[in-house]
Write a protein that binds this DNA or RNA. Structure first.
Lengths: 348, 348
DNA sequence: CCGCCGAGCTAATACGTATTAGCATCTATG
DNA sequence: CATAGATGCTAATACGTATTAGCTCGGCGG
């Protein structure tokens, strides 16, 4: 086996074409500015040598010299190719890849980030963020301290999902949960529901906050709008609690919880949506087998992926003026789990 | 908004710590060779400044200076996050990511590669392979000419799946289809089958060749071992052909074809495996709904992903001596579609 | 003949790190 | 006291590209 041949460089090309390395670079980058003049004849000669040798510029050297690399980093707090939540994260990646391909960027997955306390850390010993021109942050929860640091360092990034300020506004492409939930609440009110309950996961993540905010904003005119935690007890207990206080429709933050509530309701001898309407507030984050189409909304995940790349490229080249924050509308899903409450009986 | 602060460099650290840039580099890389001596006191001082500033070495400059970057390229001929064949490619990526994380490498997806004639090209105008230390090639079919070029350039790479020589041996981690198919043929022979037919997809890919080779090698003692193309007609026609020539067991290259044959057989009023045994030769490459567990084998895709990274790291740092080619065994799946042929009637 | 201008190119330098040869300085030894 | 060897560090350079100031050469107006 022969030793790997040394890389062909611009210097080699220059020697062969009888010009300087600078000229090769200028020809390569097709510079035709007023103050950069290369005779067409020379151009052709250089280009011929280039195609003969199959020369390709070293992207690393290029990046060192200029500032951009056409590499977009993708930081996933969980593994990017998970088994468990793959169906949830997959569409984001699909959209990211699609748009990256469109703008001619490569994607760098920061798999080298070490895992501490069960999640990857952006900042660590041998941090490699700077390899990319900028970075897309993907994950249910993103460490606020790390966002602070990104802002402080002036590193271009975009979060997928709305984030609170962290030492400055956070660029993001999120889903407009507040509006989506509010719309669903309004639909429920129009159906005649008066006693609404929000079943939360008890997390402080922005995505949860937004849903709750949308719920309370739209439920202001309801007779009752309360909140319970899905973690308080098992599904049956929760159903009992709901029936006891006369709730006719629940808004369930987590898809799996909605599935559990539905079957628990039936196990109690009640029907959905006859006795209890169930509305889900988003797509499954873990795979849950169910044949039921729940009423709720769909997160525009693929589009969020695409637009996050779009926003990031703007942040990187500075062409984006002002803060880059986008909220995309969610598509409402008309399922079979939202009905009309029984108008006769007040079961309390 | 303040202008992005200039990157902190080793020179800055050096100035702050009152040493030279070289010293900073030496401390950073924890060089303790006999001919590189730095007083512990100095080390500590430098390290303190580093942690205070949160300095992180620019990987690009690092890569330009030394030769390695701890970046593994992943070239997928199709998009890496496909909707259609995602279930097929996903396990490979899962394994690749897992092992990359283990060895502390980042993953670079070459999404910038332009698509020509429906497939991505490795080599093009602004080829960016060199960004990575080496590259994993993923795809059902890989262009032989591109493999040639990789070999010629001495670029470290590994193919997932066995590949024929291309101007030299091709490093790969493949599945041992020949053995797996041979084993299944032997099982069928032990069940008493004497007339075997191989249903091919008519492709020249190595993975197909290997299966056919395994089939013919093990079927040598059979009364009859023929081959037909799945593309010759519709599934019903194929079943008719098979019954007409007395075939009792088919070995079907493509999973979807096997599913189609099974239902066509039943539509003909026949049973599987009563009248016809069906053996599949691999996992579904496109999603196919079926409740039946077909007799066949499972491709160790995740393990192939892991080991391809392992092999690549060996190729990159030159620690791997000789040609790196691995064939991993497939796990046989005992399904319900292989039975005992009716011993009484010769239907011809 | 001088000065000027434009065309066409090159020399020099920057980017940030890794590596190596070698310069001081100090200690021990003959 | 000269010298050898160890110790601790730095200057210089390489990596391959992009950029910019400026050089040379020829032509042309005055």
């Amino acid at each position: 086996m022969t030793a790997p041949p040394r890389r062909v460089t611009q210097r080699d090309i220059a020697r062969m074409a009888g010009v300087s390395q600078a000229t090769v670079s200028l020809v390569l980058n097709n510079r035709t500015d007023a103050d950069v003049r290369i005779a067409q004849e020379t151009r052709d000669r250089v280009l011929r040598v280039i195609s003969e040798t199959g020369y390709a510029a070293d992207p690393v050297a290029r990046r060192l010299a200029s500032r951009f690399n056409r590499i977009i980093g993708v930081f996933t707090y969980e593994p990017a190719f998970p088994s468990g939540s793959r169906d949830f994260f997959h569409p984001f990646l699909l959209g990211i890849e699609e748009y990256a391909e469109r703008v001619g960027c490569d994607l760098l997955l920061f798999t080298s980030a070490p895992v501490l306390d069960g999640r990857r850390r952006i900042f660590h010993q041998d941090n490699r963020l700077r390899l990319a021109d900028g970075c897309i942050l993907l994950g249910r929860e993103i460490d606020g301290a790390e966002l602070h640091r990104l802002n402080r360092d002036g590193y271009p990034y975009v979060a997928v999902g709305r984030r609170d300020d962290a030492g400055g506004p956070v660029p993001y492409v999120g889903a407009d949960y507040a509006s989506a939930v509010a719309q669903l609440v309004e639909v429920a009110l129009r159906h005649g529901h008066r006693r609404l309950t929000y079943v939360s996961m008890g997390t402080a993540a922005e995505s949860s906050e937004d849903r709750r905010r949308g719920f309370y904003a739209a439920a202001a005119t309801a007779e009752s709008a309360g909140q319970i935690s899905a973690l308080a007890g098992d599904a049956e207990t929760t159903v009992d609690t709901l029936m006891a206080d006369g709730t006719t429709v629940v808004f369930v933050e987590d898809f799996a919880t909605a599935v559990a509530l539905e079957s628990a309701t039936r196990r109690r001898g009640l029907t959905v949506p006859g006795d209890l309407s169930i509305v889900t507030l988003g797509d499954p984050t873990i795979p849950v087998p169910t044949d039921i189409t729940f009423t709720g909304f769909r997160i525009p995940r693929e589009e969020m992926g695409r637009q996050s790349v779009e926003v990031l490229t703007g942040v990187i080249d500075g062409s984006a003026d002002g803060v880059q924050q986008r909220l995309l509308p969610c598509e409402l899903v008309e399922g079979i789990t939202l009905g009309t409450p029984d108008p006769v009986v007040d079961r309390r």
